Amino acid sequence: MIFNIAWVAIGGFFGAISRFGLSTLIKGKYPTTFPFATLLINLLGSFLLGIIVGGNLGNSLRLLLGTGFMGAFTTFSTFKLETIQLHIQRKWNVMILYIASSYLFGILLAFLGIHFGILLTR
Rank of each mutant, 00 (worst) to 15 (best):
I2T: 15
I2R: 14
I2A: 14
I2E: 15
F3C: 09
W7P: 09
W7F: 15
G11M: 12
G12H: 15
F14H: 13
R19Y: 00
R19S: 00
L22W: 06
S23K: 08
T24S: 12
T24G: 08
L25C: 13
L25I: 15
L25G: 10
I26P: 13
I26R: 13
G28P: 14
G28E: 15
Y30C: 13
F34I: 03
F34T: 08
P35G: 02
F36T: 02
F36E: 00
A37W: 04
A37Y: 00
T38G: 05
L40A: 09
N42S: 06
L43C: 11
G45E: 11
S46G: 13
F47M: 12
F47V: 12
F47L: 15
L48D: 03
L48F: 07
L49D: 04
G50S: 08
I52R: 05
I52S: 05
G54L: 09
G55D: 03
G55R: 06
L57N: 00
L57V: 03
L61P: 10
R62C: 11
R62K: 14
F69S: 11
G71W: 11
A72W: 12
T74N: 06
T74S: 07
T74D: 09
S77T: 05
S77P: 03
T78I: 04
T78A: 04
F79N: 08
K80F: 02
K80N: 08
L81R: 04
L81S: 01
L81H: 06
L81A: 00
E82Y: 06
E82V: 01
T83F: 07
I84W: 03
Q85H: 01
Q85M: 10
Q85R: 09
Q89V: 00
R90E: 08
K91T: 05
K91S: 05
K91P: 02
W92E: 07
N93M: 03
N93G: 10
V94L: 09
L97C: 01
I99N: 01
A100K: 06
S101L: 06
F105A: 12
L109C: 01
L109S: 06
F111H: 10
G113L: 05
G117Y: 11
L119F: 13
L120I: 08
T121Q: 10
R122C: 06
R122V: 11
